[in-house]
């Protein structure tokens, strides 16, 4: 039985589990997007990242994104996972999987969902650099105008 999934978690994100959760026999496509920890920011070496979230509100806002997606496209199920805590280079920070009867809907919906997540979901990233510096990264405040 396919189902929507909206979750903030400390545990490692396993792509197969989310893929299987959103997939039903009536679907002809699943689009997945994984955000992954990169080893640098504009050339400055990254040691690791720390993510923090306002967990209850974040899960609520992710569900709102799923609801928006379903209004705009003919999709079946939406799954959004975001990890918090310390993440190493190459690990998945965010995973989105959207199923649909036909490919166009899930492809477009997935792109929309990750863009919205970066605007509205209360999650923050701290970069810890290889040179010893660290800082909370702040997104573009104007993005929230369209919250």
């Amino acid at each position: 039985m396919a189902a929507d999934v909206y979750k903030i978690q400390n545990e490692e994100i396993k792509p197969d589990a989310l893929y299987n959760a959103v997939l039903a026999d009536s679907d002809g496509a699943v689009t997945t997007f994984a955000g992954v920890v990169r080893d640098n920011t504009k050339g400055r070496g990254t040691s690791y990242l720390v993510y923090d979230a306002y967990r209850d509100m974040a899960e609520k806002k992710m569900r709102e994104i799923g609801d928006e997606v379903k209004e705009k496209w003919e999709v079946d199920c939406v799954g959004i996972l975001h990890r918090i805590g310390r993440l190493e280079i190459g690990e998945i920070s965010v995973l989105i999987a959207i199923s649909s009867p036909h490919r166009k809907a899930s492809l477009e919906a997935c792109h929309y969902a990750i863009d919205r997540l970066k605007q509205t979901v209360p999650i923050w990233k701290k970069e810890v650099w290889t040179d010893g510096g660290e800082a909370w990264i702040e997104g573009d405040p104007s993005a929230l105008a369209s919250r």
Binding site: M57, V121, P122, W124, K125
Partner: peptide
């Protein structure tokens, strides 16, 4: 600012028992 997990304006009136959060520009993803 959020009140009870919904974004709120500066002139919003607070109520007893509210959960208010200060939210820096988000940077998830």
């Amino acid at each position: 600012v959020s009140i009870n997990q919904a974004y709120a304006e500066r002139d919003a009136e607070l109520q007893d028992g509210d959960e208010v959060a200060f939210i820096p520009p988000v940077s998830g993803g």
